[in-house]
Design a binder for these strands. Structure first.
Length: 434
RNA sequence: GCCGGGGUGGGGUAGCAUGGUUAUCCUAUGGGACUGUGGAUCCCAUGACUCGGGUUCAAAUCUCGGCUCCGGCCCCA
């Protein structure tokens, strides 16, 4: 006997049916926003991931040397692959490109709540536009797809910030070591205020600077009004341009009816180094789970990969947290596998069964039949377990008179009909339910 | 990599503190009966102490280690 590898999952038919339902709802919403689906290989050169994260990243990857001596990794995220494609095919593509994908990803990490070693992650990105309307599309698509799954503003919070703004703000305070501060701000929710202050002192900030940072971080709240307030207290050319674009995003999200979903929250920085502007995260309001979405603007990645300048904005959403949140709200579907019709047999009627199968399947029904030589009673039991809507009984005795029996399993109502009539037009006797 | 708590048939469990007959019950699965309508009911069968070492006359039970699951730290793309 073999066991499943740590942090991986098996999906049995019923579970698969449920996931399929969730994924197709998500795909439907995204395609309504004009995104097209793409896919890339599950394996890539290791360098694709070490270029921005350094060699240490190998600890968190499923990486190995292939027979040609190349270092290969299973993809831990999709963005590098998509940007690789974009850079190499930029000449033939038309922009903006709105792409989405639901890849399987692998990360060699310790599994925890909402975190696995193999998982699915929805990615959507818009490439080629620096306009805030691209940011708006991405954020609203995220909100809309959650709404279509059954969430509302009492369940989720979209926390938005902007890295450039934070950077400008820190520069104005005379703080140069921007990334060090980001790292500490990113931790703020997990640590005490005292530790937070001590860490900032640890990177040589003075008390005045720390106080200013506190005030700035506490400016979180309703997106539009927070931005308005900021625009009054922080002047300067760099800042005001950023504020203008955030204001546009905020206003538009309000116009789309998403005012109560979005919060301005300058403590959102995201761990990833490649973000260059707007960043956002989606959390459950109770903060019971880790972030459901994370994303933002990453305008420099294409250049880092050796291509021309291609601005980009997007997000990723893992399926593990999504499932936890949907189960908590009781909106994760309890799907059952189902077929339209099961054919039970009595006696030697194989040729008649074959004809019936062919006819029914030709009309688009999902059909199955007994291949276990069970007695009638057990065939009926099995049909019930398959979730069949109809049971067709083909028996030697009735067949001598040209008849078969059709039972609707839900109601139990049963009719005897002519075999020939039935197989010449099965649709007139059945209702397709799937 | 580190810390805490768990692992009893396919699923859910009783037993474990205080070591001692054939390891409990429900469910699932397979078969049978009900002579072609019993999707019910009844009967039968299959099937487990996570793995390895230690203590002991004797280990599901005590002990150590591995694996793994759950949660947390690191990290989070």
């Amino acid at each position: 006997m073999f066991e499943r590898l740590r942090g991986t999952r098996d999906f049995l038919p019923n579970e698969m049916a449920a996931r399929k339902k969730v994924f197709s709802s998500i795909k439907k919403t995204i395609e309504e926003f004009g995104f097209f689906e793409t896919d890339t290989p599950a394996i890539e050169l290791f360098e694709l991931y070490s270029i921005k994260s350094g060699e240490e990243i190998i600890e968190e990857l499923y990486a190995f040397e292939d027979k040609g001596g190349r270092m290969i990794s299973l993809r831990p995220e999709l963005t590098p692959s998509v940007v690789r494609v974009l850079v190499s095919r930029a000449k033939e593509l038309s922009f903006p490109a709105k792409w989405y994908s639901i890849p399987r990803l692998w990360r060699y990490e310790r599994p925890q709540s909402g975190r696995l070693r193999e998982f699915y992650q929805l990615n959507i990105d818009i490439f080629g536009s620096e306009d805030p309307r691209a940011d708006i599309e991405v954020i609203s698509c995220a909100i809309k797809l959650l709404c279509d799954l059954g969430f509302d503003e009492s369940d989720i919070e979209v926390r938005i910030s902007d890295r450039r703004m934070l950077q400008e703000f820190l520069l104005n305070l005379g703080i140069e070591n921007y990334f060090d501060v980001l790292k500490i701000i990113d931790k703020r929710e997990k640590i005490s205020e005292k530790d937070f202050n001590e860490m900032l002192i640890g990177i040589n900030l003075n008390n005045d600077q720390i106080k200013e940072i506190e005030i700035f971080l506490n400016s979180k709240g309703n997106f539009l009004s927070s931005i308005d307030a900021l625009s009054k207290s922080y002047k300067g050319e760099g800042v005001s341009r950023i504020i203008e674009s955030l204001k546009k995003i905020a206003q538009d999200l309000n116009d789309r009816g998403y005012e109560n979903f979005v919060t301005f929250d300058p403590s959102i920085v995201r761990g990833l180094d490649y973000y260059t502007g707007m960043v956002f995260e989606v959390h459950d309001r109770k903060r019971e789970f880790r972030a459901l979405f994370g994303g933002g603007r990453y305008d420099n990645l294409a250049e880092l990969f050796g291509g021309e300048h291609i601005p980009a904005v997007g997000f990723g959403m893992g399926d593990a947290v999504l499932e936890l949140m949907m189960r908590r709200k009781n909106i994760w579907p309890e799907e059952k596998v189902q077929i339209d019709i099961f054919i039970a047999t009595i006696g030697n009627v194989e040729r008649e069964v074959t004809k019936a199968l062919t006819s029914l399947r030709g009309s688009g029904f999902k059909v199955d039949f007994d291949i276990m030589n069970r007695n009638l009673s057990n065939q009926i039991k099995f049909a019930d377990k398959l979730g069949a809507n109809y049971l067709l009984i083909i028996g030697e005795r009735d067949l001598k008179e040209g008849n078969v029996t059709l039972r609707e399993l839900k109601s139990g109502s049963e009719t005897k009909i002519s075999y020939n009539k039935f197989i010449s037009s099965p649709s007139s006797h059945l209702t397709k339910v799937l």
